[in-house]
């Protein structure tokens, strides 16, 4: 088995064509991050008992986000309703074809059951590209703050966070944030992926079983 994370789209597929080994895509460029989507689904299901018919708002830099692309696809498969929210240049043209809607107005997160905050990927911002005028203006317009949330709305983030940019620290540390749950879910879902591929059968763990996490 080969677990591969690579900065370029399609690297895992290239490796898969060249070997008979199982390939786990641990993130390829801006393309896909499948295990992140699995752990996010797991986290949502643990919290709500279902994924179907939930409304998930994904906020921020969708353009550069492999997390977003895997998650949109996974949520659409599971019957959730997805709204992407962010600055125009960070919502890729044509993304609605993945089965979601888009808005440039942060108020659009108000109706969501889950607000999924993406990291502003500064390292992916080409110099001079001017996706947004400044991080300061981004934070002011699209930052997820307590004032923009309803009580009880759950907040998720794939990490690592830029506190004070895309997410207000008060949101990140609030009881409605599922961010630490996501980290724990990451361990068990990735264990399950490895187990399944190595043993050739699903791991004998039922959803809801207590799992010991180191």
């Amino acid at each position: 088995m080969i677990v591969i994370r690579h900065p370029q789209i399609g690297a895992p597929q290239l490796v898969a064509r060249a070997t008979g080994a199982h390939i786990v895509n641990a993130g390829d460029g801006k393309h896909q991050h499948p295990t992140q989507a699995l752990l996010d689904l797991y986290t949502i299901k643990e919290e709500f008992g279902r994924v179907q018919a939930l409304h998930v708002a994904i906020v921020g830099d969708v353009l550069h986000s492999r997390v977003a692309r895997s998650l949109i696809q996974a949520l659409a498969l599971m019957g959730a309703h997805v709204t992407l929210v962010g600055p125009p240049a960070l919502l890729p043209r044509g993304i609605e074809s993945m089965g979601c809607e888009t808005s440039t107005d942060i108020a659009a997160i108000g109706a969501a059951d889950v607000v999924y905050v993406l990291r502003m990927q500064r390292e992916r911002m080409q110099e001079g590209a001017n996706y947004v005028p400044s991080l300061r203006e981004y934070a002011a317009r699209w930052g997820v703050t307590p004032e923009r949330l309803r009580p009880g709305q759950k907040v998720m983030h794939p990490g690592p966070m830029n506190r004070g940019v895309e997410i207000d620290p008060r949101v990140a540390d609030h009881a409605d944030a599922l961010i630490e749950t996501q980290v724990r879910a990451g361990l068990v879902t990735r264990m399950a992926v490895l187990y399944d591929l190595l043993v050739g059968a699903p791991a004998p763990v039922r959803v809801g079983d207590p799992v010991e996490v180191a």
Partner: peptide
């Protein structure tokens, strides 16, 4: 077109490639 890898449209959005409109 800078950084563009493929036509900008639905498929570039889905695959994550920088679009060349």
């Amino acid at each position: 077109s800078r950084g563009g890898q493929m036509h900008e449209g639905e498929i570039s959005a889905q695959l994550g490639f920088t679009g060349y409109p």
